[in-house]
Design a protein around this nucleic acid. Sequence first.
DNA 1: TAGATTGTTAATCGATTAACAATC
DNA 2: TAGATTGTTAATCGATTAACAATC
Lengths: 223, 223
Amino acid sequence: MGEISNPKPIPPAEAAVPKAVVSRLSLYLRELQHLVRDGYETTSSTQLGSLLGFTDAQVRKDLAYFGQFGYPGIGYRCSELINAVKGILGTDRCWPVALVGLGNLGRALLGYKGFETQGFRIAAAFDVDPAKVGTAIEGVPTYALDDLAEVVAVKKIKLAMIAVPAPAAQDVADRLAAAGIDGIMNFAPVTITPHDGVSMVGVDLAIELEQLTFNVVNHQPKP
Amino acid sequence: MGEISNPKPIPPAEAAVPKAVVSRLSLYLRELQHLVRDGYETTSSTQLGSLLGFTDAQVRKDLAYFGQFGYPGIGYRCSELINAVKGILGTDRCWPVALVGLGNLGRALLGYKGFETQGFRIAAAFDVDPAKVGTAIEGVPTYALDDLAEVVAVKKIKLAMIAVPAPAAQDVADRLAAAGIDGIMNFAPVTITPHDGVSMVGVDLAIELEQLTFNVVNHQPKP
DNA sequence: TAGATTGTTAATCGATTAACAATC
DNA sequence: TAGATTGTTAATCGATTAACAATC
């Protein structure tokens, strides 16, 4: 009975890659770039892991989700692996990014130098305050929030950062989704109800500090 | 034989709480504060979970690491649970924080309003640039980096944020550790070699964006 | 060749979910 | 009481680690 029934379960699209693996991939990339700058031509899963506090097995397993990048007996060629990881993450090209909110944090993000080297460029900034609109800050043109959809379409922007006050964040996220944005990084300290097909990452600075206080309060005092 | 040998294995200090649990705890706190503002007196693991995209079981399990806070048949009293979670995280008091680096990002952190309500106050800022030292920015006094140990001791500061360029970050971390800091939040895009007894959290803005590009590149296009 | 290191499979470990008696 | 919801145990699921044949 049933000799032809479901010899293999249909593979679910593609074995989904755990989120933790993807974030480690970014750390590998960062570390590899430092290694190249320090003159290393090759590295190993052991070296890469120990730089980041991971086991060598974990490094190899993570990379194995995406293919074979190493040479048995040799290790990994740094620049080759950098290119591979960039390809996997999609940062082998430059992504224009929209920034919404030109308060303290927004303006700091406009001036942040760390984006360009990793493949990101803030291509447009938006605010509701008419006084902030129309000028260029740090070389980035600023627009009224009402022009969001148009500017995003014209500039083919897929990513956005939300740096508005908490009460406005959900509305901004809704507008970004409607404008066709595919990924949102949210700095407002609220949970945003997600939209289908739009990826979200939240960065809550107070929450990060709370992780520290928990450790300080709960760990044994220093030796 | 051996009727008195190790009846129970010695409990390892205290069953360590997974990091993921602690970060969800912060999310619960944030959500509870919103619920109170919206007029809720009580909530349930189901409500709290669905607001954050977690199962009800997970909410209850997470809280169970720390005690019993709910009422069968009723749920949780919001303000009561808020106080409990604050106690667990250690944010039932106000923590003075040191900020090192007064570039773009550093100055934005000085002006960030989201810290105070959660129990944090930037009490001192440091920079190597003499032009930036001695004045108060956003009401926060600024000092030379060389005065770090002294100011940290006098003001009883336990937490610090690093917002200096990547090449300087490790040295700053070393100095902070030497000055007796217990927890460091690092915004520089480098892995910092940790110090014994000093907790670290890293926030790399480019890496967060990379998590988005990975999803955009690898997920099926929108419907 | 001997030594190093990969990719991968199997074993272990830990975290999440489901289920349910106890409680209000 | 009936309905709701907790805290907790057991079952499931997934991720990490260890081990090793294959390879350079």
